[in-house]
């Protein structure tokens, strides 16, 4: 049935998982507080009641064990969705992620598949300190063998989740806490979106132009899509017409959409909430420079997290986070205009 129902990101994720669990008995969910509690960022709300403890499995605080178990289950024919509560906790279970999940398809000569979704909460902005606020996009996008997605809104969240569950490779599904639509954490307008009741997929490797424009290309993902759109609105008042591209997936990466946009605008600003150095911002700029540096009419700019651990203090964290004002300033620099006071 078609309707204009608006879902939050967390509800879109839970709906996607529930629909795939109904369609395929091999799909199950596992993680800390994902059962009775419904996931601390509500991505599994209501699933325990419908599917029971066999298929919605609360685990101990033991990421090394249960993510390893997820890899084994995936290689044995199941389709596990495993939640790593905060991406920041990857340290204790990285062996299961990058040496097992990411490599076992290759190591087995393609004889085994690893159809596991590792979903994990990213992002800061709510004073949860340096080990609960990172995005770490590049840490995972850097590793061959993992697909990496990071939706900015509820429509993409549902379609990318269903694609992730059906994919035969391990998929890291990075959802931003501040986009979830939780009652205790404000989310930007536009994170919640009209979401069809029916099942649908969004193919990996297709970026989306969320705001067409002719003067400058802003490439970003996840929460920063909303900051970039805010910046574009500020710039529109100055007569600057920014195009905003939501990458949606980091691996595979839709370089083509970026290149076509930069060929049109000649100016590039890349925005990421992850640390600046060795990151997504550099990868996007390198993609343009390697293809045709003469497309650029000005030096490209990046707006990302400074190379420091994330502060707990609210004023300090807000000072360090990328925001619309910083994005707008970077755009003005590419146009040789003065920064706002």
């Amino acid at each position: 049935m078609a309707s204009d129902r608006v879902l939050t990101v967390s509800r879109a994720m839970a709906e996607a998982i529930g629909q795939e669990m109904r369609a395929d008995p091999n799909v199950f969910v596992m993680g800390e507080d994902i059962g009775a509690y419904g996931g601390i960022f509500a991505a599994t709300q209501g699933l325990l009641e419908e599917f029971g403890e066999e298929r919605v499995r609360d685990t101990p605080i033991s990421e090394t064990a249960f993510i390893g178990a997820g890899v084994g289950a995936a290689m044995s024919g199941m389709r596990p969705i495993v939640e790593l509560m905060f991406v920041d906790f990857f340290g204790v279970c990285m062996d299961a992620i990058y040496n097992m999940a990411a490599k076992n398809i290759y190591f087995s000569g393609g004889n085994f598949k690893v159809p596991m979704v590792l979903m994990t909460a990213t992002g800061g902005g709510y004073s949860d300190a340096g080990q609960h606020s990172q995005t770490l996009h590049a840490t995972f996008a850097h590793i061959p063998g993992l697909k990496v997605v990071a939706p900015s809104n509820a429509y993409d969240a549902k379609g990318l989740m269903i694609s992730a569950i059906r994919d035969d490779s391990p998929v890291l599904y990075m959802f931003h806490k501040g986009l979830q639509g939780l009652v205790w954490m404000a989310s930007p307008e536009g994170a919640a979106a009209v979401v069809p009741e029916d099942s649908y997929t969004i193919p990996f490797g297709q970026a989306k132009i969320v705001r067409p424009g002719k003067d400058v290309t802003i490439v970003t993902l996840s929460m920063m899509v909303h900051r970039a759109l805010e910046a574009a609105e500020m710039l529109a008042k100055e007569g600057i017409d920014a195009e905003v591209i939501d990458l949606r997936t980091l691996v595979p990466l839709d370089r083509q959409t970026v290149l076509q946009s930069v060929a049109k605008t000649g100016r590039l600003v890349v925005v990421d909430e992850d640390y600046q150095s060795y990151g997504v911002t550099a990868e996007i700029i390198a993609s343009v420079a390697e293809t045709d540096p003469t497309m650029l009419k000005a030096a490209p700019r990046r707006v990302a997290y400074p190379d420091i651990p994330i502060p707990y203090s609210r004023p300090m964290e807000q000072f360090a986070l990328p925001n619309a004002g910083k994005v707008a300033d970077a755009v003005r620099e590419t146009l040789d205009l003065k920064k706002a006071a």
């Binding site: 309707s3 608006v6 009652v183």
Partner: peptide
């Protein structure tokens, strides 16, 4: 009122979750 899941003036099916209320988290 934390969330409305349908727009003002939109069609709502019977039994749909239409809103979310928050009370002390």
């Amino acid at each position: 009122v934390a969330n409305w899941f349908y727009a003002d003036g939109g069609e709502v099916p019977k039994g749909a979750t239409v809103a979310e209320i928050t009370v002390e988290k």
